[in-house]
């Protein structure tokens, strides 16, 4: 198979594209069902996110008179494409290693910032005051959580690099290979501060309670998504589903890529995502209330930042 075709397949079918979307929507379904069960409800069917997506294709897309049409419709498309590309950049431990032509951890880090930027663009292009509030909240939150996650990536990169007797490694493939050979960072106490910082980062990046401040439906009526309807809203749903796969997958690659080779490895990978989703998203979501933006801003510049700095220090010294 020629290289270009393999690249295209990895972005469009596996592990990006169809696979990432399907897995992301299935994870969302499990999350909704689990959250319902934790509240002693019956909850929606497991396939509910798929039903929602099909439904949205049948609705009319309405564009506000004051909106900037090109940005309003282009933003969600850019978000989905960025997330599918990011999913193709992530290794599936034991089964798939991304081609160096796609990029390394730095590219992935930039792609991870795209959904937040897209939400800001969408919010401001819609011309709605609620969108503008969502815009400013999303931006504050992003400024707060970007610094800890950079430091977490640096800590893991340094740890791997030093272990291999060189400087810092920014290749996720190398990080996964190193851990599969020398044991996962999850079991290394020196990496726990960085792990904790990551665990604080991912609910904020996924925009769930207690950090769903930008899209708070009871305060700012879903903020940037307020004016979206029909297929355009469906694109946002697809973006957030693929983003869940990317962020959870990143966590697994950085800290716990152990598991069998081949197809069983894929199953183990998906199970780990499911476990992380259940504990880190569903349980957190039903047991916490929403923070105010200033509280969240202060929180990220205090604890996750301190933990991430400690993580870098521990990775260098230990």
């Amino acid at each position: 198979m020629p290289e270009s075709l393999a690249l295209l397949l990895s972005v469009a079918v596996f592990p990006g594209g169809v696979f990432a979307l399907g897995l992301g929507l299935a994870l969302k379904g499990v999350d909704r069902r689990l959250a319902a069960r934790l509240q002693r409800r019956v909850g929606p069917p497991l396939m509910q996110p798929f039903f929602d997506l099909v439904k949205l294709t049948r609705k009319r897309t309405m564009i506000p008179d004051v909106a900037c049409r090109a940005v309003f419709l282009g933003a969600p498309l850019a978000g989905v494409v960025a997330m599918l590309l990011a999913a193709a950049l992530l290794p599936v431990p034991g089964l798939y290693e991304p081609s160096p032509a796609l990029g390394d951890l730095l590219v992935l880090f930039y792609l991870l910032a795209v959904p937040a930027v897209v939400l800001m663009l969408a919010g401001s292009a819609s011309g709605s005051p609620f969108g503008a509030i969502g815009f400013s909240r999303e931006m504050m939150l992003m400024l707060a959580y970007e610094i800890p996650i950079v430091l977490v990536i640096v800590a893991v990169g340094l740890k791997t690099g030093i272990g291999r007797g060189e400087g810092m490694t920014l290749s996720l493939t190398e990080i996964v290979r190193y851990q599969r050979a020398h044991g996962a960072f999850l079991l290394d106490p020196a990496m726990w501060p960085a792990l904790l910082a990551f665990l604080a980062f991912f609910p904020a990046n996924l925009g769930i309670v207690p950090f769903d401040i930008a899209e708070a439906e009871t305060e700012v009526l879903e903020g940037p998504l307020l004016e979206y309807s029909g297929p355009a809203l469906g694109l946002f749903k697809m973006m957030s589903a693929a983003k869940a796969v990317v962020v959870l997958g990143l966590g697994i690659c950085l800290f716990f890529p152990s598991g069998p080779d081949g197809l069983p490895g894929l199953a183990v990978h998906a199970l780990k995502m499911l476990a992380l989703m259940a504990v880190g998203v569903s349980v957190l979501r039903v047991s916490a209330g929403r923070m105010r933006i200033d509280q969240a801003f202060g929180f990220f510049l205090k604890w996750p930042l301190a933990l991430a700095v400690a993580g870098v220090a521990a990775a260098v010294l230990a």
């Binding site: 319902a36 409800r41 019956v42 929606p44 439906e217 307020l226 004016e227 809203l233």
Partner: peptide, 13 residues
Amino acid sequence: ERLGCKYCGSPRH
């Protein structure tokens, strides 16, 4: 929610 319903904040949804 078991009927697939969800309360939404925006009339567009």
